[in-house]
Design a protein around this nucleic acid. Structure first.
Length: 206
DNA sequence: GAAACGATTTGCT
DNA sequence: GCAAATCGTTTCT
């Protein structure tokens, strides 16, 4: 699944896209090297009707990208320290998006390790991109990449999405957010690959 | 113009 | 296990 067909698939609501994107390969090409990430953990945000979404109170300069076409990156700074990376989903006009929470570095682990070593210690390969901020560092993604189109040919960032078997996909409540109407347990909007060691540890079990 | 707050990580107790 | 770190964006006066 690549090119225009990928854009079409991403134009569905985030909760429908999420299972198809698990196992997807995200690649960034930078001057210090190329890193490819196998996506293992995602969270869906449903825009204006989702209190957990930055788009809950409508469009602002910051979240404008989320209301645009699917396949672009929405990246923001959190707590003044780190970045979180989202993939915009849904049709134009909706702010549906998927937060990339974790992944497995399958190519360029040495490059990712060098980037991670600049800020902290990372002993194991599975920790390279375990967690949203770590993922951003390992992939060298920051606000400069906000709005980048992953589907366009020739871009420095791209994604392909081979499907993983449905039985590998686990779901559960999002981290630190309740669904609309309250109870987080009734909104299993987090998706991950079952038993994958790169999924955030204490969040691994529902 | 000012103030509050946050989709987290890290390091210390 | 808990608390500090840190700053752009949003919201209110």
């Amino acid at each position: 699944m690549t090119g225009p067909s990928l854009r079409a698939r991403l134009s569905s609501p985030a909760r429908e896209v999420a299972p198809a994107l698990l196992g997807g390969l995200l690649t960034t090409r930078r001057s210090d090297g190329t890193v490819t990430l196998r996506i293992t953990e995602l969270e869906a945000y449903e825009g204006e009707r989702d209190p957990g979404s930055h788009a809950y109170r409508g469009t602002t300069p910051r979240n404008a990208v989320m209301f645009g076409p699917a396949g672009h990156l929405y990246i923001y700074r959190h707590l003044g320290l780190h970045h979180c990376v989202n993939l915009v989903c849904g049709p134009v006009g909706t702010a549906s998006a998927l937060l990339l929470r974790a992944g497995e570095v399958v190519r360029g682990a040495d490059v990712a390790l060098a980037r991670r070593s600049a800020t902290g210690v990372c002993r194991r390969t599975v920790d390279l991109a375990r967690g949203p901020a770590r993922l951003a560092v390992a992939m060298a993604l920051d606000r400069a990449d906000n709005g980048a189109d992953l589907v366009a040919r020739g871009g420095s960032v791209s994604v392909i999405a081979p499907a993983v078997p449905a039985r590998w996909v686990a779901t559960g409540p999002r981290v630190g957010v309740s669904g609309p109407g309250g109870d987080a347990s009734t909104y299993p909007w987090r998706f991950w690959i079952a038993d994958d060691p790169t999924v955030s540890a204490y969040r691994r079990a529902p």
